[in-house]
Design a protein around this nucleic acid. Sequence first.
RNA 1: GGCCCCAUCGUCUAAUGGUUAGGACGGCUUUCUUUCAAGAAGCAAAUAGGAGUUCAAUUCUCCUUGGGGCUGCCA
Length: 464
Amino acid sequence: MKIRVRTAPSPTGHLHIGNAQSALYNWLFARKNGGEFHLRIEDTDKVRSTKEYERSILYALEWLGLNWDGEVVRQSQRGIKHRKALEQLIMEGKAFWCNHTKEELEAERKKQEAKKEPPRHICSHRHNTMHYPASSTQRIKDWTLRLALDQNSERKIVFDDIIRGQIEFSVRLLGDFSIARSLDNALYNFAVVVDDSDMEITHVIRGEDHISNTPKQILIYEALGKTPPQFAHLPLILASDRSKLSKRHGGTAVVDYKKDYLPEAIVNFLGGLSYTFSKDILTKEEMIDEFELSKVHKSGAVFDLKKLNWINSQYIKKLSPEKFKKALQQATGRLDDILDAAVPLITERLEKLSDVENFSYLWKEPKYNEKLLKWKKSNFNTSLDILAEVEKIIDDFDFEKGKDELRKVLDEFSGKVGDRGLVYWPLRVALTGKDKSPDPIDIAYVLKKEETLKRVKFALGKIW
RNA sequence: GGCCCCAUCGUCUAAUGGUUAGGACGGCUUUCUUUCAAGAAGCAAAUAGGAGUUCAAUUCUCCUUGGGGCUGCCA
């Protein structure tokens, strides 16, 4: 049987980092096994779902390069299917209407908690089938459709999680859980089962936070007369306080990372967070090759920005000038005229794309406080005097001879001065306006002779 | 409270019934350097606790502890 998996984000926010990892593992599993990877938008919560978020999610998935197969399925368009399934269960007496009020349910729960019993609703008045007007799209106040379960059953729902092994739950502890607000308003657990079943999903690979939904879903599959898929529950991505990474931690939307990170780096990082590949840096193709679902880790992993930064820097270093400029434009929307010769100087040291601003002296004149020109082991005037000498040397120097030659000439001059810092420091500042930068001579060769001299002259106050 | 999941350096993790418990990020040191965010070399850093099985346990079992998730007429 062909493997079919899906990822099912709900458009109540941007694509979350955790969903992205889950999508990635689904994708890897499908690609590895010649299966299909589907995308379903769970937009049944009409109040919180927006088209904007849906677009954002699709965009994020595309950005990461997690291409899906077939059409996007929207849960909101599957109402009829849900309704049919609901009606089937009512007909067969496997579901019933409950009209306990919220207050009653709450009181029941409180009582149970006080008695240290599992919180659940055991319904005493089960209204069967057609009490509810089947044609109405209106919801009758307080009426809820629940799955009819034997509350005296000793049965346990057991399933083999591909990642975690056998997990079991007592049916009794579930209570008569709800499956729909009305015939036209199926609840999550029910909609998921009907959709996964119709989509012929063979493996449900999702976050650990869904483990406790699984027995309910298995029971729904049974009631519907369908065979449940295989389940695999991924570990959660944790914030540094080891709680589930959530909105309150900030920086949890994939799109937040676009301005600083290469999509390849994000994918690499997320992939390696809960799975051990043979090396730290590897392509998606290599990941597909090595991936085995059962080898995904069980314990949650803390999202470590430092490691992401490092991975990102590794990818940036490998970028050609062409690709670097393209990536920069994609990430930040900027279109600076960065010379190809300048790119290696930047990529060598860049961790985050937006930090490219720190290297702006490579394509535009720097602004700085002239006091910075003073070498720490000397005084301001001497620093300028030496810089004036350096200006002459550069002016006399033929750039065609190469940067090594220039370095030699300046080193010789340094020897005479007796302090290399006194020679190189003011030059660095004149060219970059910064106290740290790549080798000033490398920079001079990017700027070319004319611009180099111009900046030195500016530093010396010869031009304003 | 109830149910469920998890447990090796700060973080991500490797390993095997017998190893000096390995690697990566980060940190620190040294080196290179005018400086540094780069490079090179190196150092520190972990099997939560207690029983049991065994010649031998970090590894297998149980308990405890700790952390997390779920506990909606949200998804």
